[in-house]
Write a protein that binds this DNA or RNA. Structure first.
Lengths: 375, 375
DNA sequence: ATCGCAAGTGTGTGCGCACACACTTGCGAT
DNA sequence: ATCGCAAGTGTGTGCGCACACACTTGCGAT
């Protein structure tokens, strides 16, 4: 049972003398200095490991620190220290309403909060469909000064060697979007892509009759095998089907971002050849492309599951064209990515290494409230 | 497209003189005082509306404030001002693993963060199944000093007159659990209970054949009509059924918290009389009671939907006994409830009045990651 | 014997703000 | 003519900490 009191509070300014061996409610550096019989500067040296302290004083001060459970006043620390930190956020460029716009909203909120701790955020954007642009951006970053980085891991093979450089420079980094456990990251803020694949599979299969086949819609990258995230989701998706004795076929169809006519031709073709298709899935946020096609052909009863609550998907879900969306709180990823780095730099507070976010399920009935995920 | 630069940063300590009519990167009170030709104290009076400023100076200072978009350094403000705030959190008493324990976790995190702004949190707990205990607690609160309150609205009829008292005392308050829009609350942090009822209905009906009947499990309160939250959810639930032409019957069954044998008897009886029952729902977190009964009788194929991811429900969901859970992020409610009040008291930052949280859907496939919802 | 230097140590200042306190001015009451 | 008082106004200090800087001490090199 919980029913505590939690009284207390400093009484600061009242008589703080004559504490004898008592530990005052809130301990300051001067208090420690007095208890250890040294000056505040020496205490400061110990607290910050600046060296130049005699073994005797070091021991004495550490003993006091131990005893009183000193917690520095971060407010005062930030005010006193002019230390400025720069956090680099490496993420895809985006237009309004796209997936990464939500991520950016989280970054922006973190930026506003982190400012008071003398932390500045700097964005570096690349083209998510062009690995070369990412490579070029990394080259730029080699000459940029920053104290920590948030890295979107879309191009996993290129991220990995870069993190080795960061390790060498002693710069901490946090992953978002998908994890690369092999790297020495300070943290990962995102969902388990593999399991998010399984969730999509479950949602898609729920109402499907045994013989049904599926379509997998894909947007091809330039010279790459697709984002790390999408590959992992697909693995999880197929794994689920396998474990649940799915008997149908999966047909890949390559779609284009901005070519509705082309997409319609490809899909018409596919449905003509395979009339048994009764479900469709995309492993990124472009499920609105398939939805747009299906909305115009209501006769085809196709269950459709995709990822990410961007405006266009949201509408299609509310309209009943999309069956379900699986989402991963991009704003939270942006917010936490920056804030976890901020906490580490400013306070030395180490975040949980793998902070897997919940995998959210959105249906027509609950989509309206899916917003406002950051605290 | 986003690809900004965001350079800048103070250069504090460098030459800050000779700024002419330029606005320095970061404006302090002394800067404003200099620009307005007054002392910092006079600026301080204007900023805090302390009065005792001549009309001429007032106008001049306000003009400067307008021009430079002054943003007080909250760090410095907090450090300088010894002002202490107390936030009262009025919530049900709980045991580990119960619903309100999650809420408390959020309160605790907020407490830790708010401490640095000289904000103290004080809990006041009542018995959620006993309206009289709530009434008694409110009586206590009349003599307690606090600067803001977070109120769980289980006993709506008793909360409403109390808020009138708070209004009279000029104390801001925030609702959690369920909203009471008629009150003058600073904010509401929680889900739309009505729509959360609809979500449960959708999840329950999804795989149900037309003629199936439903059971509604309830825990009776002492001398009350059930919590506001539960009543609203039930309204939403029934509304959904009506809108979707549900033809079956709904049978209420009154269960007891700690009397397994009793519950089994009542349920055996009910299923004997109504073998057509194929779905069950509870409108609070006690769905594990029904789940425990059904787990021991695997022959009955009953879809079961409930609320809140407490340990016992989580286990039953993972085991496949519970079909789905609807959840409302209690930790976030606790966290935001306190923090929104904190922001208001310390910074004068007004939160959004109705911050409806997302309505979360948990299935066997995504329950594992449902944790860690606070930032 | 003298100097340089590393290892220790303490004093003083400022971060931006809030607020206590002292002070000035002018006007009405006596 | 003098006093009290309200309305304005400014100076000074401290919140807890970081850090620049000056200083002392002792030892090895010359």
């Amino acid at each position: 049972m919980y029913d505590s009191e939690n009284d207390s509070e400093p009484g600061r300014g009242m008589e703080r003398e004559n504490l004898g061996s008592e530990v005052p409610a809130t301990v300051r550096i001067v208090d420690i200095a007095r208890m250890a019989g040294v000056s505040t500067a020496t205490v400061d040296r110990v607290i910050h490991n600046r060296g130049k302290v005699s073994a005797a004083n070091l021991a004495r001060i550490n003993a006091v620190l131990q005893r009183v459970d000193y917690r520095p006043n971060l407010i005062a620390r930030t005010l006193a220290s002019g230390r400025q930190y720069v956090i680099a956020v490496v993420m895809p460029r985006f237009a309004a309403g796209e997936y990464w716009a939500d991520f950016e909203a989280g970054v922006a909120q973190a930026e506003a909060e982190a400012r008071r701790y003398n932390v500045t955020v700097r964005r570096y954007c690349f083209d998510q469909y062009d690995g070369a642009s990412f490579e070029a951006l990394l080259a730029t970053l080699r000459d940029e000064p920053f104290d920590g980085a948030v890295l979107a891991t879309l191009f996993a093979e290129r991220v990995i060697p870069f993190t080795a450089e960061l390790d060498a420079r002693g710069i901490p980094y946090v992953f978002v979007d998908s994890d690369l456990p092999a790297c020495n990251r300070l943290a990962y803020c995102g969902t388990s892509s593999f399991d998010a694949g399984a969730v999509a599979a479950r949602l898609l299969c729920e109402g499907l009759e045994p013989g049904a086949d599926l379509v997998v819609g894909k947007i091809l990258h330039r010279g790459d095998g697709g984002s790390n995230q999408c590959r992992e989701r697909e693995r999880g998706f197929r794994d689920y089907l396998e474990r649940h004795d799915f008997r149908g076929e999966l047909y890949d169809v390559a779609l284009r971002l901005d070519d509705e006519a082309y997409n319609a031709r490809r899909l018409d073709e596919l449905f003509a050849v395979h009339p048994s298709v009764a479900g469709a899935v995309t492993f990124n946020s472009t499920c609105y492309i398939l939805a747009g096609y299906l909305a115009a052909r209501p006769a085809r009863r196709v269950r459709l599951v995709g990822y990410d609550v961007i405006d266009r998907n949201r509408r299609m879900l509310a309209d009943g064209v999309v069956t379900a969306l699986v989402a991963q709180r991009p704003e939270v990823q942006g917010y936490r990515g920056v804030m976890s780095l901020c906490g580490w730099l400013v306070e030395g507070r180490r975040p949980g290494t793998v902070g897997n976010l919940p995998i959210d399920i959105l249906l027509k009935e609950n989509i309206f409230y899916y917003t406002n995920n950051i605290i």
